[in-house]
Simulated scan of single mutants.
Amino acid sequence: MLPPSTPSAPPRRRRSRSLTQEVVDGVLAQIKAGELKAGDRLPTESELMHLLGVSRTVVREGISRLQAAGVVETRHGIGSFVLEPDLRANFHIDPNDIVTIHDVLDVLQLRQSMESAAAGIAALKRTQHDIDALNTVLEEFQQLLESSKETVDADFRFHLAIAQATGNRYFVEFMSYLGQMVIPRTRINTASLGKETQARYLRRVHNEHQEIASAIIDQNPLLASQAMERHLSKSAERLRASLETKETATQDA
């Protein structure tokens, strides 16, 4: 099923948003509006590509996130179909609820335990394919940084690649479920919290990613876990410092 009107040309993308998340949001919006119901087949990959103006890779990643969230199932050779909502699935994080520093900190706290463990496991289980995937996304991040382009998708795919390197599908499903929520700067201006320029902030993020990847490639689980913990802790420290400053200013007002 396609929406009533299909644009003749792909719309211009807003750099601040994840293209993959746009696929997810588009399908969820159709389900919420009743345009797609349980049992309905999703538009084909080609239809979604034309409708949203994105690549096949982006469409497939979006469908994977919807699968991980239990929204759709894919039947080989037939297509992807909307599932009945599982009323027993109580765990849910709505991206629209992640709007304050408190919200972002809560998600970061959840990630610190999960991703630090994932990095250590990835160091033990990584394959050559995983090494290639990590190096590829690091190179892409560097290229985007040098050309002053948006790095959110590459940032997310780095963390997803680590989850995939664990060989544990539950880590992958958890990261896919969170999607771009794992990147704090999609919710707030994290660079400004640390009094840095955006470029300097992103260079530091890239350096931290390289440290994590090096430990995983060297099969050092302790260093990998510690590097991931430091990476996420630095984000949390900036958020807490900003929060304390705001609360102090409110009390003095």
Rank of each mutant, 00 (worst) to 15 (best):
R111L: 15
E150W: 11
I101L: 15
A68T: 02
A163L: 00
R157N: 03
E61D: 12
I98F: 01
D130Y: 01
V107Q: 00
N90R: 15
Q109G: 15
Q143I: 13
T100W: 04
D103T: 02
S147F: 01
E139R: 14
D153T: 08
L66F: 04
A68Y: 01
Q67A: 07
G79T: 10
S148Y: 12
V99E: 06
T151L: 13
V72E: 09
L108H: 05
E150M: 11
Q112E: 09
A117N: 13
Q112I: 07
V152N: 06
I78P: 03
V72S: 03
T74G: 05
E84A: 13
T136D: 15
V58W: 02
L87Y: 13
V71C: 07
A122F: 02
A133M: 11
F156A: 03
R126E: 05
A122K: 00
H76V: 15
I78C: 07
P85R: 05
E115Y: 05
A154Q: 05
F156V: 13
R56A: 15
S116V: 02
S116E: 12
E73I: 06
A119S: 04
V137G: 00
V59N: 09
V107L: 08
R60V: 06
H92W: 05
S113C: 05
H102N: 15
A118K: 00
V58F: 02
S64C: 02
L108G: 12
S80V: 11
I101D: 10
A69I: 02
F91W: 14
A68D: 07
A161H: 00
Q67D: 08
S147Q: 02
T136C: 09
Q143V: 05
N135V: 08
A119T: 00
R111W: 01
E73G: 08
A163Q: 02
T136G: 04
F156W: 15
D97P: 00
